[in-house]
Nucleic acid binder design. Sequence first.
RNA 1: GCGGGUGUAGCUCAGGGGUUAGAGCGCCACACUGUGGCUGUGGAAGUCGUGGGUUCAAAUCCCAUCAUCCGCCCCA
Length: 419
Amino acid sequence: MRFQKPRGTHDVLPGESYAWRWLESTFFELAGRFGYREIRTPMFEDAELFVRTSGETSDVVSKEMYRFTDKGGRDVALKPEGTAPALRAYLEHSLGAQGGVTRLCYNTPFFRYDRPQKGRFRQAHQVGLELVGSSSPLADAEVIEVTTRFFAALGLDDTLVKLNSLGRDACRDAYRAAILEYAEPFLRDAPEDYRDKVRKNPLRLLDSKDPTTQEALVGCPSVLQFLEDESRARFDRLQGLLQEAGIAFRVSPEIVRGLDYYTETVFEVHSERLGAQTALCGGGRYDDLVEELGGSPTPSVGVGIGIERALMVVEELGSLPVEEGPLAFAVAAGPETATFVRALARTLRDEGIACMVDVGEKSLKSQMKQVDRANARYALIVGESEVAGDRVTVRDLVSGTQSDVSRDELPFWLKARRP
RNA sequence: GCGGGUGUAGCUCAGGGGUUAGAGCGCCACACUGUGGCUGUGGAAGUCGUGGGUUCAAAUCCCAUCAUCCGCCCCA
């Protein structure tokens, strides 16, 4: 019986994991420069955590959660997103008790039961930020700045920041009613279940790619016309701050986000190189979320960035980083010298130098092929004469030239040539 | 959840009812018993995705199923 990976999942193979580590370390290094500290939360949570925050009617909760009852009768779900667990942990451990704002960053898998296609998986991964405890547009601007700088650090050159504000309760209610009214003639001919869905969350209509839907919405009022004065002022301030930071963006009233916890600022970053899915990340402000989870009102803002999608764009650009081979590969030119070769390799590794050896007891020729395949820079060839003189013949695999180096000198010789 | 495309060697693919299923790349060996890449020669490697059906005969036709890719929906 041969097994295959579950649908919509992927194995990150040795040829790919290097790029993943590069992306992850780039993210954490950058986030660290802004003061974000890593948090790791469990792979599964009380399912109700997501129902309460993302919203009963959201696609994520209503049809995409991996939700099950465990042996203890608990209703749990594999995390479908990263924000609710991070904030649950923030509250549970009183991370905000010292006052001020709390900056968190994370790298996590997330799970959504959906039909896989380009850029869409059932287990995907995201890195993200949560800036908890500030209502200032400065916080929104900081999160967006880290995000755009991250994409720049990855070498992405065609990203577009789409920015919108959903306002607060009164604005959202008024706007929902307005959309329904505007789309009424169009909805009369729509299927019943579609009408239901739209009634529950009229904002869903706005980011539809369906041509007839888009046509029906031409001239539809923008959410921005319904913003309360305070939200309007904050949105304007945020735009000013982004300009100050040199971040290009486009105000995009169609950006509404699929999770219900967002308030005021929402944003996505898109790339044209992704196929049907163009969103690289999604984020925004969620001022009511902590309160919803039983904490005191704590305005917050955050972002989740899709690792797979970001890497897809880097690959499209042909700029995935290439993994270096080991610096050295020690080769026994005769079976009698294998012991010497192993000792030599140990010495080098103790010095912090990567050195491989053959474990197949193969011929010299076969070992040299291994050196080539491992993409090692130097072959350290040891035969009877080298053992006798306590020396090593070092072959540079790139230039094909050889040097005679004493065993004592070898670590320094190699370190001096390390890239 | 819906629609379409594709599953043949490790990889990329050809073959489209009729003997032992092919190529290129890769792999192994030898030419070259102290040296990788290049060249030449030889070799190994395939439940033709899986299960059922039609047929004297199925990789080939039919059905189902699984996987995968692309799109819808939604999003990361």
